[in-house]
């Protein structure tokens, strides 16, 4: 609702239905829903009763303007009003469906006002009978990094700091673990005598990051995805210290994404653009996977090293891998129960 409409609404509350109709009829301008008090007074020939009404209207409109202008974010502009309401919204988990719809409306409108963008922000809930899991084939990965690129584009990652959720480690054959791994290589791949291992958020069943968050801004959804409420996070970075897999990223400055590269198909808990000073992380592409699509990294992988699916579906590919391949997980001794397995052909 625009500010002008808000004022109109306020004024309407002051008037009887008959007066409302008369004011509307009197107003010759384009806005037929509502005649502003000042116009009514200045431009019309009025009888005493009408004049009185109009003055009341004007006073009410004035009061409404003062009221909006006094909101601490000031301005009285629609943007300020929306930001004001956004500031006081609840933790996403505590919102009713109506409140969720309202914040999505506000966020979409703000994108329009601020970036002239038209995002579609979903709030698709976890689907029943779904628990997502991921498997990574270290025999197949060749270190091409197409997954990294796809992830950046799909998830609106900050181009300014070159943020990446996925890391690909180059490890010498015969070595295991990450101690001898090289996470920053800039040469032709695949390198002779090496294998490649990718990491990202492992969406632990027992996530240490969730436990430590002082404000409950991060949690595990029913489909196993660990998400962050970007508007609730206070940016203390305790979760970043608690994560044993380097799965979390912080927005040290305002994220930069070229306007024409923003993915407008968004999820509230997924890839909608973040602000500075909040945490973010891989969400298994929640905006895609809850609609039955594969995560961007899986779709982009040219070697088929990435397997994603529903752990509760006995016919899924991920279940086949877990049943038939030799699998392992990183740092199992920590009891975090990652839903991310590694396997070989």
């Amino acid at each position: 609702m625009s500010n002008r409409e808000k004022i109109a609404e306020k004024v309407r509350q002051w008037l009887k239905p008959a007066d409302r109709r008369r004011l509307r009829r009197d107003d010759g301008g384009a806005d037929t829903r509502f005649a502003e008090g000042a116009d009514a007074v200045m431009n019309k020939r009025l009888d005493r009763r009408q004049a009185l009404k109009a003055m009341v209207t004007g006073a009410a409109a004035g009061a409404a303007v003062v009221q909006t202008a006094c909101s601490p974010l000031g301005g009285g502009s629609e943007k300020a009003q929306l930001n004001w309401e956004e500031y006081f919204k609840k933790n996403y988990r505590l919102m009713t469906d109506e409140e969720r719809a309202a914040t999505v409306t506000r966020l979409e409108r703000l994108s329009k006002l601020e970036q002239n963008a038209d995002p579609h922000i979903q709030t698709t809930p976890p689907q029943k009978g779904v628990l997502f899991g991921y498997a990574f084939n270290i025999s197949k990965c060749q270190g091409y990094m197409d997954c990294v690129k796809a992830c950046i584009e799909e998830n609106n990652l900050d181009r300014g700091s070159n943020m990446q959720y996925i890391r690909i480690f180059e490890i010498e054959n015969g070595q295991d673990g990450l101690a001898s791994a090289n996470g920053d290589f800039y040469h032709e791949v695949p390198a002779e005598g090496h294998y490649y291992l990718g990491t990202q958020c492992f969406h632990c069943e027992n996530p240490p990051c969730v436990k430590v968050c002082p404000v409950g801004a991060t949690w595990k959804e029913d489909d196993g995805i660990v998400v962050v409420d970007y508007d609730w996070c206070i940016g203390c970075r305790y979760c970043e210290a608690a994560c044993p897999y380097f799965g979390r990223r912080f927005n040290w400055s305002t994220p930069q994404i070229p306007a024409d590269e923003v993915n407008q198909e968004q999820h509230y808990l997924g890839n909608r653009p973040r602000k500075k000073g909040v945490m973010e992380k891989c969400t298994f592409c929640v905006q895609r996977t809850r609609k039955g699509k594969l995560p961007a990294c899986v779709e982009a992988c040219p070697t088929g090293a990435r397997v994603f699916g529903n752990l509760l579906d006995p016919d899924s590919e991920i279940r086949y891998v877990l049943a038939n391949k030799k699998v392992f997980r990183l740092k199992e001794e920590l009891g975090t129960e990652p839903k991310f397995w590694y396997f070989t052909d």
């Binding site: 500031y87 933790n91 505590l94 436990k211 430590v212 968050c213 002082p214 404000v215 409950g216 801004a217 609730w232 996070c233 206070i234 940016g235 203390c236 970075r237 305790y238 912080f250 927005n251 602000k275 500075k276 000073g277 909040v278 945490m279």
Partner: peptide, 30 residues
Amino acid sequence: FVTVDLGGPHRAWHLIPKLGYFNWPQSLLT
């Protein structure tokens, strides 16, 4: 020192029990 370390100090009210979401007793920070 804790306040200047926060990425969103203006959202620190989220820490106020009842008004915000106080993740006690799980989080040692609370």
